[in-house]
Computed example of a mutant assay.
Amino acid sequence: MSLTRFQSRILGTSLSKAEQAWFPKWVDGYRQHCRGTLDQNLPVTEELVIGFLRSLRDRRVEAWRRLQAARAIELYQELIPIETKLDFAKIKRTLHELDRKENHQSAPQSQREQQIVPGEWNPGKLDDSEPETIKRMRGRMRVLGYRRSTEIAYVGWLRRFIRHVDDERLERYGEAEIADFLTELALTGRVVAGTQNQAISSLTLFYEKVLGRELGFIHSLRASESARHL
């Protein structure tokens, strides 16, 4: 089931407005974890669901939000035609207990929604005055759950690359221009290896997660760097 169909079907449920907004985002995050396409039915297995929830935990997403993600996937499986359905009862009990331990049980969910900083699992409001390329980068990073500090750093590198090619339409450019940009950073930008790696991560995320284009030479570069440190 496509995310669009899922989103349209949940409108007739008893979900709150906040949940109607968030459930498709959680399912989209799960889709990316499963490496599924936008128009295919996603497999819902214990291994995949727990793996996704653990990836959220590793990003320090709070237990109550991981519980919301689990409920979103549970609803998704109820709305698609699959024969074997995963029992989410144990998963939800565990997350409820973790939520209680994190001392969030007493705060209303609507209040918790307001406490989340835009860029940390909250889409917030994008600045319409920013270039479309920057807004797309921010939007994707927020859906994927990147921290606000990481968003600021990555957007900064994306702006530098835009200045390098002197064009906001980055879909016109690819590996050759990125390699030239990284070479310029190494030779004249006075950046250390760790900083250059952040630039690489920023451009990799934009091209692969926003534009849907794989940067093969980046992966080869990182593989060779890892081999040199073995």
Results as ranks from 00 to 15, higher is better:
100 R>C: 07
32 Q>R: 12
117 V>D: 07
218 I>E: 10
77 Q>G: 05
160 R>Y: 04
40 Q>C: 07
168 E>C: 03
124 G>C: 02
174 G>E: 04
1 M>E: 09
85 K>M: 04
12 G>L: 06
80 I>W: 09
93 R>L: 12
55 S>N: 04
73 I>V: 07
111 Q>P: 14
7 Q>K: 15
211 L>K: 08
63 A>V: 14
92 K>Y: 07
187 L>P: 14
158 L>M: 06
116 I>Y: 07
46 E>C: 05
131 P>L: 00
133 T>N: 08
117 V>I: 14
53 L>D: 08
118 P>T: 02
112 R>C: 03
18 A>P: 15
30 Y>H: 00
82 I>K: 00
164 H>L: 14
75 L>T: 09
151 E>G: 03
26 W>R: 05
66 R>M: 10
119 G>R: 02
208 E>R: 13
175 E>T: 15
204 T>I: 05
228 R>W: 10
102 E>P: 12
111 Q>C: 08
137 M>S: 00
83 E>P: 01
197 N>L: 06
131 P>Y: 00
15 L>Q: 06
80 I>D: 05
85 K>W: 00
155 V>P: 01
220 S>T: 04
3 L>R: 04
199 A>T: 10
22 W>V: 15
106 S>W: 02
61 V>L: 12
75 L>S: 02
187 L>F: 10
32 Q>W: 09
